[in-house]
Computed example of a mutant assay.
Amino acid sequence: MLYTIFRSLFRVFFRVFYRYQVIGREHIPAEGGTLLCCNHISNLDPPLLGSSIERKVRYMAKAELFKIPVLSFLIRSFGAFPVKRGGADRQVLKTSLALLKEGNVLGVFPEGTRSRTGELGKAFTGVGLFALKEECSVVPAAILGPYKLFKPIHVVIGKPIDMSDLRQEKVNSELAREATDRIMGHIEQLINQYKKAS
């Protein structure tokens, strides 16, 4: 209930102040575990991406944010779960895979941090592990900014990526990197295709 309320409020906010538009919303599967992978250019990206689709999106966020009373309430309401820095890889993987197995949408920003230039950066291989260890839909998305008041910002969602040829019983670092690079390649294609069309 709170998620729906906050999503509606964010949609109004983004429509009024950023005239946001969503392209390709129909590519989000109606149900089932979905890994939604997007570039990262601003702290506003999680609520913008979550506002762009009808299904609830879950995110990981650094644990320190959950110690700030008002912010903690907001990010929990908007589907975030805490991740501790340093040595928490196994727990992150366990929680993320559980969410996908339960049929949730897991939103991830493979670069791990915001791009100061707006250019696509190098991604961590964790997203490749998520994509290969769980039978889920892997959907690329791109936020085309920059965020400027009263200037349009676009969210472009691509078709699910076929990862079947990379999914094996044992996933090694090379497979994870290959899967990650494939995901980032699709995100880059979305960015380039939209720029050429606009």
Results as ranks from 00 to 15, higher is better:
residue 1 M to T: 14
residue 1 M to V: 11
residue 2 L to E: 09
residue 3 Y to T: 10
residue 3 Y to W: 09
residue 4 T to C: 08
residue 4 T to H: 01
residue 5 I to G: 10
residue 6 F to V: 12
residue 7 R to W: 08
residue 8 S to R: 12
residue 9 L to Q: 11
residue 9 L to Y: 11
residue 12 V to Y: 14
residue 14 F to I: 11
residue 14 F to V: 11
residue 16 V to T: 15
residue 18 Y to K: 07
residue 18 Y to T: 13
residue 18 Y to M: 13
residue 19 R to M: 14
residue 20 Y to D: 10
residue 21 Q to F: 09
residue 21 Q to N: 14
residue 23 I to M: 09
residue 23 I to E: 11
residue 25 R to C: 03
residue 26 E to N: 10
residue 27 H to L: 03
residue 28 I to V: 15
residue 30 A to M: 08
residue 31 E to R: 14
residue 32 G to N: 10
residue 32 G to T: 14
residue 34 T to R: 09
residue 35 L to E: 07
residue 37 C to E: 07
residue 39 N to Y: 02
residue 40 H to T: 11
residue 42 S to I: 04
residue 42 S to E: 12
residue 44 L to Q: 11
residue 47 P to V: 02
residue 48 L to T: 05
residue 51 S to I: 06
residue 53 I to K: 04
residue 54 E to D: 15
residue 55 R to P: 06
residue 61 A to W: 03
residue 61 A to H: 09
residue 62 K to A: 10
residue 65 L to S: 12
residue 66 F to C: 11
residue 66 F to M: 13
residue 66 F to N: 01
residue 66 F to H: 09
residue 66 F to K: 13
residue 67 K to G: 14
residue 68 I to P: 03
residue 71 L to M: 15
residue 71 L to P: 04
residue 74 L to N: 04
residue 74 L to K: 06
residue 75 I to F: 07
residue 75 I to R: 04
residue 75 I to H: 05
residue 78 F to K: 07
residue 78 F to M: 14
residue 80 A to T: 15
residue 83 V to S: 07
residue 85 R to P: 13
residue 87 G to T: 10
residue 88 A to V: 01
residue 89 D to N: 11
residue 90 R to V: 12
residue 90 R to F: 08
residue 90 R to A: 15
residue 95 T to M: 12
residue 96 S to E: 01
residue 98 A to F: 00
residue 99 L to N: 04
residue 101 K to A: 14
residue 101 K to M: 02
residue 102 E to W: 07
residue 107 G to M: 02
residue 108 V to P: 03
residue 109 F to V: 02
residue 112 G to L: 03
residue 117 T to A: 05
residue 119 E to K: 09
residue 120 L to R: 02
residue 124 F to K: 13
residue 124 F to N: 02
residue 130 F to K: 06
residue 133 K to C: 12
residue 136 C to K: 01
residue 139 V to L: 10
residue 140 P to D: 06
residue 145 G to R: 06
residue 149 L to E: 06
residue 154 H to F: 09
residue 154 H to M: 01
residue 155 V to L: 08
residue 157 I to D: 02
residue 158 G to T: 06
residue 160 P to C: 00
residue 160 P to W: 00
residue 160 P to V: 08
residue 166 L to V: 10
residue 166 L to C: 02
residue 167 R to H: 07
residue 167 R to V: 06
residue 168 Q to S: 14
residue 172 N to R: 01
residue 174 E to I: 13
residue 175 L to Y: 03
residue 175 L to F: 00
residue 176 A to G: 04
residue 177 R to N: 04
residue 177 R to T: 11
residue 178 E to V: 03
residue 179 A to G: 15
residue 184 M to A: 08
residue 185 G to T: 08
residue 187 I to L: 13
residue 190 L to H: 01
residue 190 L to E: 03
residue 192 N to D: 14
residue 194 Y to M: 05
residue 195 K to G: 15
residue 198 S to F: 08
